Simulated scan of single mutants.
Amino acid sequence: MKREIFTIILCCLSVFASGQKEVYLQKNNILYYQDYNQKPNALISARCKLDVYYPKSSTKFSTLIWFHGGGLTAGNKEIPAELKDKGICVVSVGYRLSPEVTAPGYIEDAAAAVAWAFRNIEKLGGDTSRIFLSGHSAGAYLASMITLDKSWLDKHKIDANRIAGLISLSGQAITHFTIRKEKGLAATKVVVDELAPLYFVRADAPPILLITGDRELELLGRYEENAYLMRMMTIAGHRKTRLMELQGYGHDMTKPSFPLLLKEIDRIVLSKNIGAR
């Protein structure tokens, strides 16, 4: 009888434990340049910080590095509410903005933040084989540059092909309009140079999901830029680039994109046979 009661208690405790909600922790304002040979200054100290939101009890979790939008001239690091409590870690990155810096300063910041994640995320329980890059608009541009142009992470002795996947939300594929403005060029002047993701199409890149708003509602040419990037990646031999167009949504298309982003993380993780998020 005592053994039966003990068994019932254990079962109840097991059910209670399995029904408990995962606890998440957040570490804020981590200076990601502290490990690198970058001279500190007031702007770096103010802008080059990241926040980490991660599941306390999980191990080998996926990590999403999120770059905010704002045209490379505005915005602050943020952890979107739609990405919280989803079983993943979110690293939200702040970076220097134009005109305080010009290209490629903000790209250098993005690379340093990604390198920080590769060097530190295991300490929190994460898996470096499951680090994904994403962002909206200017943030997606930065994530795309770091993924496709391997030279930025090479400076940190990290192979960009270790990135598990890129999910770009309405990012620029040509040279960003703020960079063109810094050069005195009009927004309608199309430039594809070493500061354009399109310049670095390659067959061996990580999986890429490009999501844009409706081509008739997006910022000028944004859907077409991404469609051309997808086409050129395919021609170059990359078989893992996909494009989604969200009908009825303009440039502010993050909310309907987040479920697709999370689904893409699961799809890639499962395809690698390393378990779901």
Rank of each mutant, 00 (worst) to 15 (best):
L148A: 13
L169Q: 07
D159A: 11
G125L: 10
A160T: 15
T175C: 01
R162M: 11
I121H: 03
S144W: 10
A140C: 03
H176R: 00
A143Y: 06
D149V: 06
G139P: 08
H176I: 02
R180N: 15
A140P: 03
M145F: 05
S168R: 06
M145Y: 05
G165F: 07
T175R: 06
I179C: 04
I121D: 11
I146D: 05
D127Q: 01
I131R: 04
F132S: 11
L142N: 08
L169H: 05
R119L: 13
I163T: 11
G125A: 04
L142T: 12
L142R: 00
L148Q: 07
N161P: 10
G126K: 00
L153K: 08
K150E: 06
G126E: 10
D159Q: 08
S144A: 12
L153V: 05
D154N: 15
I121Q: 02
D149A: 12
L169M: 09
D127T: 06
I131M: 04
A140I: 03
E182I: 12
G125N: 02
D159T: 10
S137E: 02
I146E: 03
A117H: 00
A138T: 08
A138H: 01
I174Y: 15
S168G: 03
R119S: 12
A164K: 12
L142I: 13
T128H: 06
L142F: 05
